[in-house]
Computed example of a mutant assay.
Amino acid sequence: MPQTLPQALLHQAHTRGSAIALRYKRLGIWHERSWSELAHDVSGLAAALYTLGFGRDDNMLIISQARPEALSLTLAAQWLGGSVTLLDPNCDNRALLADLKPGFVLAENLEALQQLHERGVALYLDGRGLNHPQFADVIAYADLGTDTPAPACALEATAPAFVFHTETTVQLSHAQLLTGARTLVTREQLSGDEEALAARVFAASGQARYLLAPWLHAGFRLNFPEALATRDTDRRELGPTLVLGTRESYARLEQSIHERLPLPGTFGHRLYLWAMQPTPSRVRRWLGHWLIRRPLLDVLGMSRLRVPLLIGPALSPRSAAFFGALGIHPGNWQEPSSRQASTDHLLPQSV
């Protein structure tokens, strides 16, 4: 049984090598990477990081939206026994970065690099605007490569995989993440046939617990939208079977539907209210489904949804009623306390 996240990746590459591990969209076109291709990519990145001096007990700081490159470099750093800290590029991280003084950084773009007061080895994804002499030493992610093979994959299950800086510093070990992933996969009956959308930045521990680790354990497909602005369009195009969200993200989707509804008092609005009300009538349920509820699910990109997950606080009564009328009842997974998450590396977390 795999003991670390990169070991779980290698296990999937060995058992499901040709199956699709992830998809990502570029210029409107979906690209795919199989499990074997992804494992090869991560191994190559681990070798390149090793030549740059990254090793066991080092931390890789990543300031990026959810992108496949950030995910691959995360697994490469963990391959070498290091940990990863993920920050949202849309937040002002300057005060935190001044304290951290990171030795290894992956920055999404110029704006992310400019948040750094000091930097060691710095990598970037988007090079626009980086022709200034002050960025002469930064390295393009696309240029990472070496002929030297990667060291053997680290095996320490209790080593920290992620370090999150919120109110306190929270460390999540490989063992903690994989134990939680097994619990979630069993409880939600996840399989390798799931389609999940990685629309949110990975800077929250819930993403590591309830999306990344289960993805590696179950071997389903992880899909990256082209940009945050296109996530709703891309969700409709994909029709994911697994959605991970928060109270706020579900409320945002609900609000997007309410903004499309006909004006109150019109026939269309009365039909919507009629279709969304619970009823013992089979005919009314059938008509309401095909006239209103099924089209709404298509607009939300949730017509194939099988496993809705919710992290943190429960939905508001209004949101719960709205999604409940559509047949969506998110399974709630509560985040453990910061103290528990940072000290209890081996025990499964309460959900």
Rank of each mutant, 00 (worst) to 15 (best):
Q189M: 15
G327N: 00
E118K: 06
A325Y: 01
L155Q: 15
A181Q: 01
A77D: 02
G245D: 09
A46Q: 03
F135G: 07
V299D: 09
T179Q: 15
D58T: 09
G28V: 04
L222E: 01
Y210L: 12
A208F: 12
L27V: 04
L310M: 04
H165W: 05
R282V: 11
I29P: 04
K101H: 15
P330S: 04
G301Q: 09
A199Y: 05
L116Q: 10
A157Y: 02
N131K: 13
D147P: 05
H165R: 10
L22T: 05
V283I: 13
T4V: 10
I63Y: 01
E194K: 14
Q114H: 12
N332S: 11
H165Q: 11
Q207G: 03
P225W: 07
W30M: 14
E194P: 13
G312V: 02
R304L: 13
L49W: 07
D92T: 08
N131Y: 09
D99L: 13
P348Q: 05
K101S: 14
R119I: 04
P102F: 00
R26L: 13
D143L: 07
G120E: 05
L273Q: 13
A208E: 07
L309Q: 06
L22V: 07
G301V: 05
A142L: 11
A107E: 04
R187K: 07
T230R: 10
Q171P: 02
A140I: 00
R339F: 13
V138G: 05
F202H: 15
L87Y: 07
S319F: 14
P68W: 02
V185H: 07
T169M: 11
R235A: 14
L123A: 11
I62M: 06
L347P: 03
Q340G: 06
A314H: 14
R200W: 09
L197V: 10
A227G: 13
G53F: 06
T146Y: 03
L242N: 06
K101R: 15
W274C: 00
L61T: 11
L96Y: 06
V307Y: 06
T233P: 02
E69K: 00
G120P: 02
A229E: 15
V299M: 10
L242K: 00
L228F: 12
T343M: 07
N109L: 04
T74P: 10
L10K: 01
M276S: 01
P133A: 07
S281R: 08
H217V: 15
Q340F: 13
R339Y: 13
E195Y: 12
E259S: 08
S337L: 06
L96M: 11
